[in-house]
């Protein structure tokens, strides 16, 4: 159970709710600079896995190592500053704030102003607002959401909210980006946009991406490696082409042949 050379090492993680096992002895590595997809049928434990990594759930057994820190023992709010950002399956934006403020709120961990300075809005506080606003405007331009900059996100359509949430995760400037079903519920065009953004983020910013996705065509296209979960157990791991022809995976998805 030692951290290895990869960016993120998941080691024998077991998580259960009461008597229900959500994850059982799951282990995998995430190498620096790759796009790793986690797939599996509904209820396979994919989101639970992501929740364990981001500190929302605490697994009963095992460890998750990121840059030599054990995430299972790190307080939840200290995980983002280590360099991990995520989006949520059901969108968890700050609904009462504008697009701009949502993304600015994610700059929290990069700002140094004390609360007293915030109250006075003087010196460092004012300087920081300007600096970080520039970064945020860059993200807004990149994601092509300049036209909704001032809109309250609660009133935005689904596809745009997903994009704002991606922007908020980007604003953390993390090394590892966890995307929980970023393309669910979108039409083909929106899906392609989102896939393009993910690939651009990966290439331009050198961010390592772990994503959960149900659209197999998309997963096979954009991911470098795939991990397959079924009933909380890892049943396969490998290159997209290997996974496509793995009998166990086919069985998990289609049942006995």
């Amino acid at each position: 159970m030692t951290p290895n050379s990869g960016l993120l090492a998941v080691r024998d993680v077991s998580l259960s709710f009461g008597g229900t096992a959500a994850l059982t002895d799951v282990s995998f590595d995430v190498q620096e600079g790759e796009i790793l997809a986690i797939i599996g049928p509904n209820g396979a434990g994919k989101t639970s896995m992501l929740n364990c990594i981001s500190g929302f759930y605490r697994p009963q057994e095992g460890g998750i190592f990121f840059k030599s820190a054990d995430l299972t023992k790190t307080p939840t709010h200290k995980i983002a500053p280590l360099g991990i950002a995520r989006t949520f399956q059901n969108i968890a934006l700050y609904t009462g704030l504008s697009t701009l403020d949502n993304i600015m709120a994610a700059r929290h961990i990069h700002m140094r102003q004390r609360s007293v300075e915030s109250m006075l809005y003087w010196g460092r506080a004012q300087r920081e607002e300007v600096e970080h606003r520039e970064v945020v405007e860059g993200i807004i331009d990149f994601l092509e959401i300049a036209h909704i900059r001032k809109s309250i996100v609660g009133a935005l359509p689904y596809g745009l909210r997903k994009r704002v949430e991606l922007g908020r995760a980007l604003a953390l400037e993390s090394d590892l980006l966890l995307l929980d079903e970023p393309m669910t519920g979108m039409n083909v065009e929106e899906k392609e946009d989102m896939a393009r953004f993910v690939l651009d983020i990966h290439e331009q910013r050198g961010v390592t991406v772990v994503l959960i996705e149900h659209d197999m065509g998309l997963v096979m296209d954009i991911s470098d490696r795939v991990v397959v979960l079924d009933f909380g157990v890892k049943i396969a791991e490998g290159l997209p082409d290997e996974i496509k022809n793995d009998p166990q995976v086919i069985q998990a998805y289609l049942g006995e042949v």
Binding site: T76, P81, A85, Y94, A105, I109
Partner: peptide, 17 residues
């Protein structure tokens, strides 16, 4: 912004540091 994040979604706020 930190205060409003807690109002609007305290779980997300915590995961965002």
């Amino acid at each position: 912004r930190a205060l409003v994040s807690i109002r609007d979604n305290d779980l997300a706020a915590e995961l965002l540091g």
